[in-house]
Design a protein around this nucleic acid. Structure first.
Length: 862
RNA sequence: GGGCGCUUAGCUCAGUUGGUUAGAGCUCCUCGCUUACACCGAGGAGGUCGGGGGUUCGAGUCCCUCAGCGCCCA
């Protein structure tokens, strides 16, 4: 064993057992002994594999992590004890925006794919660049190197915390999402999608974040209620027969108007269909059209179609074959030059008023001009309405036209959608009702998965494009690397058949500037963790995986995208089971959040209560249920751990009398029957992924064992009824204790390991999960309740008399049914000991069991 | 607007196919230092199971409906 803990001898039962400091001791010992090492010679049916969620390393670990990772760990430990070789890797997600920001701020650098790679680059700062520092542009490979340097420190902290929590991870299979192997897997999967036609590039209107200056995917959207206002705006009919009044919340887009639209059944506007009107201010002639998506009861019932105000505009634009008049640029400003079709001198003059302004400045200006022109009727009417935001963004999304990469996900293809829905049906969901979230999402998809991002840090889209003789990029025929070249960075690597000096030259090549969405990489976590093509033998032993544990908030992203990738690449589900964990709530039932300053750090709680107590709190929560943070529950957990320590110490005080000694006393056999029942219940619960139920059943059994059974037989093990009677109890106690320690091992790995090593060899965590057969033949547990009831009544008599429980009873009269009296006779000796009863009188009775006890006078104080 | 979940003791929650007087822990009260444990033990108090209706010999459990809370999606 490690030399670090000479004061700690696990084979000796201390005089005063303690839980202090056991986490560090056992974490080290487990690592040294390889207790959680995955046995990669095991065949697939002997393996239990877990697709662990890789936490984002740019943040810090909080109680939500402790909560959900504990749930998974209890399952992993159970499976290991049933004899499975458990593949339980850990990953760090250092891909994506949060890491990008941290690297920028820490080193004072900025990623720029146009910059050449600099070997041995030294960043200007390592922490706290001055406020006025202008970031230095560096290449993407350099940026990735800095990322790996920065996250390494955080990863150590994360690993220490997870070890201290007692996660039975095999750390030899650690991965990060930005490392070479992950980038290789991500690019390989993409190229295969491309080769099979599952990935494609397209120029199309796309939701765009003007701050991040990137396209975002449907899965990253959220609606937020925002104040807005309806404006009534009059369009003059081209035939001079008056005005058409529309309602809009975005008059700023008037210059982008390409048509008006009303519902085909709307009698008010039927006569106008096919005619034209002129936009106010700009004087552009636009048609009045019919489309069923126009809402009769919204505003005036007729709307302007702009390119593009919202997703409905995109549908109208596509289905009605309308021209494009984009006015919003990727920087969130009005484009400098007026759109096509805006040609009149007065229109151009009006446009110049807003060109270059930010959107909300332009909106103010347009409203002002409309007022002056008289085209705006009445005052704006304030409303609250849902507006689409990037989930990490601060300003409403705009829609701009850009070239992007997509992976098919059923959003535009009924057959594929059906296949993916079917995959969801075939997954086993824990809890089951979470499956609806999946089908809801897939059924609501309205487009393919946009995977390209106009960011600089991440896994690059691994393609180049030819540049033709005129210097134009040929997007239709991307140049792809061979798989043995991966990972590549098209901003620094040169495609096959070209020279470096042909970059960005006519008849040369150009690298795709974009990176892939972080989900495009994390959707491959089973392939990355299992080393896929890099170690096909390993991959074959763990895929498809047994379990994906994750939060229910990322069903639409991580879960769904993983199913999509696996469906294409392996024509299978990526896992058999998915377990969704709930949220941690404040004691006042609000979701815990940093901003409210109510986050408790895990390490403080580990120190205060011990890791096992914190795990107990986590494991007490039903799968998938949002749970209040509760230090009270941790106190209970600590109490349980302490009890296990002391109960074990007590039982081991009495050596096994004889190797062949077996329980013979009916009370002992009845207790073992209960233990057997608990083993059965806990096993069934674990097989159903209900760790909380397994804990609850085990815990109830353990407290009954301590408070009732041990108290009942304590006199007998002290030899009050002779060595044979004592031997029965002692062997029963040891059988039960062995089973109970193992039943608790998934929940309290540190405490159970401590007490197990006092008397057993090897780790409890590689011991065999208890089974009924090991208990031998057991008795009839129905005698226990009557015996317990009689003891309880004796105790109550003493409590009522406000006297010590050790007060002797000179005579106890039991009046009960024949069956209760029969049970009483079996437990009579033990009851005499436990209740200090000197003599018993029994009387058959048809009614309830009653015991009347005559107490001896209290002993005079000596 | 559609979907899903929740509502049981002061608090946090169990209650699996409908089956006697609805359970646990915490909290509270009373008592007890009894040689495994005072980081303990014994005992007690506390509930019209969200409202209403129905099925049934029997409903916390099944059905309908209403209300409140929460989440997902549009």
């Amino acid at each position: 064993m490690a030399a670090t803990d000479s004061a700690f001898d696990p084979t000796q039962i201390p005089e005063k057992p303690t839980l202090d400091g056991i986490e560090a001791v056992w974490a080290q010992r487990w690592q040294d002994d390889g207790v959680y090492t995955f046995n990669r010679s095991a065949s697939r049916d002997q393996v239990y594999s877990i697709d662990t969620p890789p936490p984002t390393v740019s943040g810090s670990l909080h109680m939500g992590h402790v909560f959900s990772y504990t749930h998974t760990d209890t399952i992993a430990r159970y499976q290991r004890m049933t004899g499975k070789s458990v593949f339980y890797p850990m990953g760090w997600d250092d891909n994506g925006l949060p890491t990008e920001r941290r690297v920028q701020n820490f080193f004072g650098v900025r990623c720029d794919p146009n910059v050449a790679y600099q070997p041995g680059f030294t960043p200007p700062f390592r922490g706290d660049p001055p406020k006025d520092h202008q970031p230095i542009s560096i290449s993407r490979p350099n940026f990735i190197e800095l990322c790996e340097e920065l996250t390494h420190e955080d990863e150590k902290v994360f690993e220490d915390l997870f070890r201290r929590l007692g996660l039975s991870v095999d750390w030899d299979y650690l991965y990060t999402t930005i490392e070479d192997r992950s980038r290789r897997a991500s690019q390989r999967a993409f190229l295969r999608n491309l080769a099979r036609g599952e990935a494609y590039t397209q120029e199309a209107p796309t939701l765009w974040d003007v701050d991040f200056k990137t396209a975002v995917a449907q899965a990253e959207l959220e609606d937020r209620e925002r104040p807005g206002a309806y404006h009534n705006i009059a369009f003059a009919r081209s035939d001079g027969q008056g005005d058409v009044v529309i309602d809009t919340t975005r008059p700023v887009l008037l210059a982008a108007c390409v048509a008006l639209v009303a519902h085909p059944d709307d009698d008010r506007y039927k006569p106008l269909f096919g005619t034209t009107v002129r936009t106010p201010l700009y004087g552009v002639e636009v048609p009045v059209l019919a489309h069923p998506l126009a809402q009769i009861d919204k505003g005036t019932g007729i709307a302007m179609i702009c390119t593009f105000g919202d997703l409905t505009d995109v549908i109208w634009w596509r289905e009605l074959n309308l021209p494009t008049r984009a006015i919003i640029g990727r920087d969130g400003r009005i484009i400098a030059t007026p759109p096509n079709g805006l040609e009149s001198a007065s229109g151009i003059a009006a446009y110049e008023q807003i060109a270059g302004l930010f959107i909300n400045q332009a909106q103010t200006k347009v409203v002002e001009m409309l007022r002056e022109s008289g085209a705006m009727l009445g005052e704006p009417r304030a409303i609250m309405h849902p507006v689409k935001f990037f989930e990490k963004g601060d300003r409403p999304l705009e829609i701009v036209t850009s070239r992007q990469w997509y992976i098919r996900n059923g959003g535009r293809d009924t057959d594929l959608r059906g296949a993916l829905l079917n995959r969801g049906e075939n997954l086993v969901w824990h809890p089951d009702h979470m499956r609806h979230r999946y089908s809801n999402w897939v059924e609501g998809l309205n487009g393919d998965w946009l995977i390209s991002r106009q960011r600089y840090f991440g896994v690059p889209v691994p393609v180049w494009y030819p540049v033709d003789a005129d210097g134009e990029t040929v997007h239709d025929s991307p140049i792809v690397p061979t798989e043995d070249m991966l990972p590549i960075d098209p901003s620094t690597d040169v495609p096959p058949g070209y020279n470096a000096d042909q970059r960005n030259q006519p008849n040369g090549f150009i690298g795709d500037p974009d990176v892939m969405d972080t989900w495009a990489t994390s959707s491959l976590s089973p392939q990355i963790a299992g080393k896929w093509e890099d170690d096909a033998d390993l991959f074959g032993r763990m895929f498809p995986m047994d379990l994906r544990p994750q939060g229910h908030d990322i069903i639409r992203t991580w879960l769904f995208s993983t199913v999509v990738r696996s469906n294409f690449e392996h024509d299978s589900l990526p896992w058999k089971n998915v377990a969704l964990s709930g949220w941690i709530l404040d004691p006042d039932r609000k979701k815990m959040s940093k901003s409210k300053g109510n986050v408790v750090t895990p390490i403080d709680l580990f120190e205060k209560f011990g890791s096992d107590a914190v795990r107990y709190w986590a494991a007490s929560a039903r799968p998938g249920i949002d749970t209040a943070f509760s230090e009270d529950q941790m106190k209970v957990g600590k109490k349980l751990a302490t009890k296990l320590l002391n109960a074990t110490k007590f039982v081991l005080t009495f050596p096994q009398p004889d190797v062949a000694a077996k329980p013979t006393n009916p009370v002992d056999l009845a207790m073992l029957a209960r233990v057997g029942e608990t083993i059965r219940e806990a096993t069934v619960a674990f097989d159903q992924y209900d760790y909380a139920r397994a804990l609850e059943r085990t815990e109830a059994m353990f407290w009954w064992f301590c408070d009732d059974y041990v108290e009942l037989v304590k006199g007998r093990v002290y030899n009050s009824q002779g060595p044979d009677a004592a031997g029965s109890a002692i062997s029963a106690l040891r059988l039960a204790l062995s089973a109970l320690q193992r039943l608790l091992a998934p929940f309290m790995p540190f405490t159970t390991e401590t007490v197990w090593r006092w008397w057993q060899s090897g780790s409890v965590h590689t011991a065999t999960w208890p089974n009924m057969a090991e208990l031998g033949s057991v008795g009839d547990s129905s005698i226990l309740d009557p015996i317990g009831e009689i003891l309880s009544q004796v105790r109550r008599a003493k409590t009522d008399a406000k006297t010590s429980q050790k007060t002797a009873v000179t005579e106890a009269a039991v009046s009960a049914s024949d069956s209760v009296l029969a049970a009483f006779e079996l437990g009579r000796g033990d009851l005499s000991d436990a209740g200090s009863v000197r003599s018993w009188v029994t009387a058959p009775s048809a009614g309830e069991t009653t015991v009347s006890a005559v107490l001896a006078p209290p002993e005079p104080a000596s």
